[in-house]
Computed example of a mutant assay.
Amino acid sequence: MSHVSDEPYAEVIGDPIVQSKSPAIHGFWLTELGMDGRYDRCHVTADGLERYLSLRRADPAWRGCNVTMPHKQDVLPLLDAVEPIARRIGAVNTIVRGADSTLTGTNTDAAGFMEPLGSARFETVTVIGAGGAARAVLAALADAGTGWISLQNRSLDKAQALLAEFDVPGRAYGLGEQVPAADLLVNTSALGMTGQPPLPHLLDDVADGAVVYDIVTSPLDTVLLCEARERGFATVDGLAMLIGQADQAFARFFGTHPPRGEDQRLRERILSGQGG
């Protein structure tokens, strides 16, 4: 956890952390820009979180970190300031160190989720899952003026409470229950992820011309996305959201925007397993 260097650096923390694709993304951008700096991964346990932040706070070379599970909520009371979007979502995924050694938490997941959707406004959306990722997605959809959200989850009470918290028009449904035809279907759950149970069949409740979006990154081509493409729906994979949220964090860490014209090369690098 110690670090001695004058080179500016940022990193991603979590437990576990070896699976993170963030070093590949940020490292690619730093190389493309020819910038001095680096982006690492650091394994931080729950017991070591407070000590980690104390050490990094004192390191002027440290620009900040991205935060993955299980620390997104636990870091909140350890920070000097938390930006409104992170307060609203209830989780921090990015910490930035100020020149005065203060630590500010924010959340780039909502912006990252919306980036591949552009300025599109969806009248009817189906969201699968009611966990931490769903909170960021609901915040983004609420801000985008979504007309109706069908939130499918095992626990109806949890789903309905989430809709009420984010003040979005909608209704909670059980997994696989018939819902209004959606212009956008989003899977925020772990269902369909490597080692997890599959999603129930969902595409019969998707309108013609709809977008199907799966934030799962392992595998990147989930069964849901493969079936959606076979049926002619536009699709968005989890790497699009990951790159979108990383863009926001990179600018905060290194003071410049990444070279997004190279997204295809970045994707190829990540999929080949290089740099990660």
Rank of each mutant, 00 (worst) to 15 (best):
V4A: 14
S5F: 05
E7N: 09
E7L: 11
A10K: 00
G14C: 12
V18C: 14
Q19Y: 15
S22D: 01
S22C: 03
H26C: 08
F28H: 07
F28E: 04
W29G: 01
L30F: 02
L30I: 07
E32H: 04
E32P: 06
G34Y: 08
D36W: 12
G37Q: 08
R38I: 04
Y39G: 08
Y39K: 05
R41T: 05
H43S: 11
V44P: 12
A46V: 15
G48M: 01
G48W: 00
L49Q: 15
L49P: 15
Y52R: 10
Y52A: 15
L53K: 11
S54K: 14
R57P: 07
A58D: 09
R63Q: 03
R63C: 02
M69H: 10
M69P: 10
P70A: 10
K72C: 09
K72E: 07
Q73R: 15
V75D: 01
L78E: 02
V82F: 06
G98P: 12
S101Y: 13
N107P: 10
A111E: 09
E115I: 14
P116D: 04
P116R: 03
L117F: 03
G118R: 04
G118C: 11
S119P: 12
A120C: 12
R121T: 15
T124L: 11
T126S: 09
G129A: 05
A134Y: 04
R135K: 14
R135M: 09
R135G: 11
A136L: 06
V137F: 07
V137L: 10
A139D: 07
A140I: 02
A142Q: 11
G145H: 10
T146L: 13
S150L: 00
S150W: 00
Q152T: 06
A159I: 03
Q160Y: 14
Q160S: 09
L162Q: 05
A164K: 13
D167H: 13
V168F: 01
V168D: 00
G170C: 02
L175I: 06
L175A: 02
G176L: 00
G176E: 00
G176I: 01
E177D: 13
Q178H: 12
Q178C: 14
Q178R: 14
A182R: 04
D183R: 11
L184D: 02
T188P: 08
L191D: 01
M193C: 11
M193Q: 07
T194R: 14
Q196T: 07
P198Y: 05
P200I: 08
P200H: 06
P200A: 08
P200C: 07
L202F: 02
D204V: 13
V206Y: 08
D208E: 15
V211I: 09
V211H: 02
V212I: 06
V212H: 09
V216I: 15
S218N: 11
V223F: 08
L224A: 05
E227V: 09
E227K: 11
R229I: 10
G232E: 05
G232P: 09
A234W: 07
V236F: 03
V236L: 11
L239A: 13
L242Q: 04
A246G: 15
D247T: 15
F250K: 01
T256C: 14
H257C: 14
P258Y: 00
R260N: 12
R260W: 09
R260M: 12
R269S: 13
R269M: 14
G273W: 04
Q274E: 11
G275M: 01
G276Q: 10
